[in-house]
Design a protein around this nucleic acid. Sequence first.
DNA 1: TATTGTTATACTCTATAACTATA
DNA 2: TATAGTTATAGAGTATAACAATA
Lengths: 192, 192
Amino acid sequence: MINGKKAQAKRRVEKAESRITATLYRSGMLEPGNADIPLPRYPAPLARRLQQICASLFAEALADSGIVQLEFATIRIVAEMPGIEQWRLADFIGIDRNNASLVTDLLERKGLIERRVNHADRRARQLYLTRKGKLTFETLLPKIREANARILSPLPPRDQTLFLDLLVRLVEGNSAHARPGAGRRKRGSDLG
Amino acid sequence: MINGKKAQAKRRVEKAESRITATLYRSGMLEPGNADIPLPRYPAPLARRLQQICASLFAEALADSGIVQLEFATIRIVAEMPGIEQWRLADFIGIDRNNASLVTDLLERKGLIERRVNHADRRARQLYLTRKGKLTFETLLPKIREANARILSPLPPRDQTLFLDLLVRLVEGNSAHARPGAGRRKRGSDLG
DNA sequence: TATTGTTATACTCTATAACTATA
DNA sequence: TATAGTTATAGAGTATAACAATA
């Protein structure tokens, strides 16, 4: 069915969509400003836009707290799973262990988390929130909840649930590809 | 209704979800490897993961072409809208005009696009694909289509359409927040 | 004065890799 | 030998800001 009628029809639709965008553009119907721009119906560019939106709203929610998205994600994981090891934290968030070391180090210096040696495996460090860390988490959590709610707010509640269901299934189904660091240019290959 | 029964119930559910994750964790049922990790049901972390996945698959699709995701996005826009001005390109992709200048400059040096002065407004530059640019686009497009298809592949076709519909509505509904550059730490505020 | 685009500079983020300590 | 974590270095990406040309 790879080159069957369905695939052909799909390609025709894709081509037509491109033509529509291009025609709208040439006719002068596309004005500046993001709102008027027809979005491509492909997951990758849409994912990039959604990530941009989330970063924006999170930045707003976390403004003046001195905490950024990655740090909040760390705090949340440690709040939910006190005693978690760093390597497992890295796995949960989707960062590598170097980055996990950097972010936990920063949070420790801010007095928000505490690292203790795991007695069962003295290589590992277990993470706990300090009193200050718990307070910070509890202060920020409502703002983060609101930010997440705002992201979903263009959809009615029923569709919000549906969207999250689909999104979870997509991310889970692609977990093999969800590794940090992919997608960037290789060293020394950007011309001069 | 802000603090009504619905909101209370929602908060109870959120709390319960956290507890489930934490309990699973403490019981040792969470093994390393992304596949086994329960994902948070919040848009922001899921969006980050999805973006990671897209970057990964696009990097694979574009490997050895010397083109990265942003460059391909630019090529696609110019292919669909020949003669587009740079500022409009920036708007479409969601980058600022400095970055648009850099990426178009790079693509021009690679011989893939051509910049011409707009005679109607001599400040503006209109973008066109060169013959080589068209060839590159046509070579890469099937691979990109396949990458986008793979991203959606965990869902049955009906749900793929549904997901894209919902995603477009979310991104459109939040377009006011989709500006480049948000979400990063402010200058000189990362401690030492 | 506002807008389009260019360029230099600087900064954030994070990958790479070499290292220590422990298993 | 393998794994958890740390640290230094460096490179990719892009924000900031000053600038020129045009409107």
